[in-house]
Design a binder for these strands. Structure first.
Lengths: 177, 177
DNA sequence: AAATGCATGTAAGACGTTACATGATTTT
DNA sequence: AAAATCATGTAACGTCTTACATGCATTT
């Protein structure tokens, strides 16, 4: 009933449960399909968080075994519903974080030969192309609201195009010399 | 001389030192100016890492006080130079990570009223617009190689435009009802 | 019979930020 | 005289991942 230390990730969990009663396993699958590109979550995060959310009275767990296989399914309490709504309406700050090792390499690759820069951009393009292919394989409706899906595909597509343009530019520079 | 546990961030540090002898303070400033948008670093990361890098024999520190103010300046050793080059040439994997709370809210905002979605996208646009303004204030040449600067501005610009388009779409949907 | 999927969990550690403390120097 | 900047550092904490362990059920 006490309400301490809810991690940022616990909000995804809360949200996923709001979309329908779920077990920890279910949540993991939902997250992988729908939000992992902008908010991943691991079992090591999910299960302890479920405990904390239950201790805080925001969710309620029920045992729903499938045959002899244990299974605990969670649903929101009234408090949990209120907490979710409150979060959705609160001001948002410091919300966008990126860690991109490719850009880091690009930044420092003035160090090496010019072909190295080209190599980095190529690897970068490949990576985002793969993410893009994977995103497109998903049925956007199955993965929840489509706005985020559109954003994801659009973003990676933009990056791929930037890489292509940059590769052409770098190739031209290399040829000149 | 032993070479254990170098954090991902230690590579930024190594790279920054390669660009010129630097103190921990200098590195922090360089990172804030040049790479913080895709690879931030805090003092709590930098100073311990400098120790580890020195213990590993990749950098060498010299005391260069300014008046009575202590100051330790680092430069690369031959081993450090080799390590940097090796990193730049190695294959890169799992290099792009995003955490975006705005998208998370967008994803779950089917919960609340439709105006809430609009509100989230607006806040999102504001945030990226502010980042964009800040990036443009920087002289790209002062902030190191310009490729990463161009990428950053382009990316945030694309996001701002996506938000604008989405806002129009959402507004149109709201009017219809 | 073996492999894959369902289901739950934990321990250890990697990684990073925040907040604090200290003090000298320079600028206003 | 006060404020801002230079400079170094650490302790505590939050967050998250990795790797492991366990065992039932279903598919091949």
């Amino acid at each position: 009933m006490a309400s301490p230390n809810l991690s940022p990730t616990s909000r995804v969990i809360l949200g996923m449960i709001a979309l329908g009663k779920s077990s920890g396993y279910d949540i993991k699958r939902l997250v992988d399909d729908a939000t992992s590109n902008f908010w991943p979550a691991s079992y090591g995060q999910i299960y302890p968080d479920l405990r904390r959310l239950e201790d805080a009275g925001l969710i309620r767990g029920e045992s729903e075994p499938t045959g002899g296989r244990a299974r605990t399914v969670y649903e929101l309490t009234e408090a949990g519903n209120a907490a979710l709504r409150q979060w959705l309406q609160s001001d948002l700050e410091r919300m966008f974080e990126v860690r991109d090792e490719a850009l880091l390499r690009l930044f420092f690759s003035d160090f090496g030969p010019p072909e190295q820069r080209l190599e980095v951009v190529r690897a970068m393009r490949n990576w985002h192309q793969r993410v893009l292919d994977q995103l497109r394989k998903l049925d956007p409706r199955a993965a929840g609201p489509q706005l985020t899906w559109e954003f994801g595909t659009g973003l990676h597509q933009w990056i791929v195009q930037w890489c292509e343009a940059t590769e052409r530019r770098l190739a031209a520079e290399t040829d000149k010399e």
